[in-house]
Amino acid sequence: MAQKNQQFDKISPEMFKIVGGRHGDTEKLSDKSVSFWKEVRLRFSQNKLAVFGIFVLVIVTLLAIFVPIFSPYSYREQLGIYNAAPSAAHWFGTDDLGRDIFVRVWQGARISLFIGITAAVIDLIIGVLWGSIAGLAGGRVDNIMMRIADILSAVPYLLVVIILLVVLKPGLIPMIIALSITGWVNMARIVRGEVLSIKNQEYVLAARTLGANTWHLIMKHLVPNALGAILVTMTLTIPSAIFTESFLSYLGLGVPAPTASWGTMASEGNKALTSAPWRLFFPAFFISLTIFAFNAVGDGLRDALDPKLRK
């Protein structure tokens, strides 16, 4: 105690010196003003992995569009060389019916990417709305909404698919319907959990007190704060949609053969694991690569959007 006082005693005017004052420009920003989205873009572009992800997605999309157009082979043409290993003529080899796997992979990319992304977007919309409304409303509404979700995930899915198979003509639309019936439940549960923990925090209460309506609350406060979990759930939705598609195609709900998709190619290829491993490897590799790219982009996006991570 005494020592501290002594230190203060030692302070004397000689220890300070006038460096001069800045006049007029104290209110001026030292740097240019950066809008929120510009900053997001900036931060995103600094994330190498995320940029790589975008790059991969662009390449995959371009190949999916152009390879089937320019390839010397068509995805259904049977060339008479069965289960051939990758070679100069057939970069990814041929399959059990003697079709070029390279063109089939890119033909399949069209369907798988479409299905994966569509299913993910539908799951996202339904899941986020359902989950946040349930979480926000609480009480009986919450209970009823979440029990509906439980019921949907408990009723035998296979039976539902069989009924769809009888009622609808096979194709992409029934496929999307089948994928969307239960796909969003996981998302809804996770969003609801997040909302429950966020909704009693001060800033949400403040927003409410200021008269924010439900829509505003969901979009401006709940979703941004649950964004991490939402993006992660979406990255699970895409591969699971791609593989559920192959299961549904197996049951007869998908696009009819010989149309290819990554999921069906991989599950067919899996049966030739020891005799023609390339039939499994290439579709599986591109599924993984694409999911990886989606993940990298998702992670980058999450980081870029998170205001707390601002430097």
């Binding site: 259904r76 043409e77 049977q78 059990d96 019916l97 698919v161 069989i162 198979l165 009888v166 096979p170 197996y250 049951l251 007869g252 009819p256 053969a257 010989p258």
Partner: peptide, 29 residues
């Protein structure tokens, strides 16, 4: 499925007939 696709391609190539493969779950089938 493989047999059907083989036959489908043969009918398509040699006879010019359009064939759609319609696969179903066993009991529906």
């Amino acid at each position: 499925a493989a047999i059907a696709q083989f036959v489908q391609e043969g009918w398509h190539k040699n006879l010019g007939i359009d064939v759609t493969i319609d696969n179903s779950e066993w009991q529906v089938y």
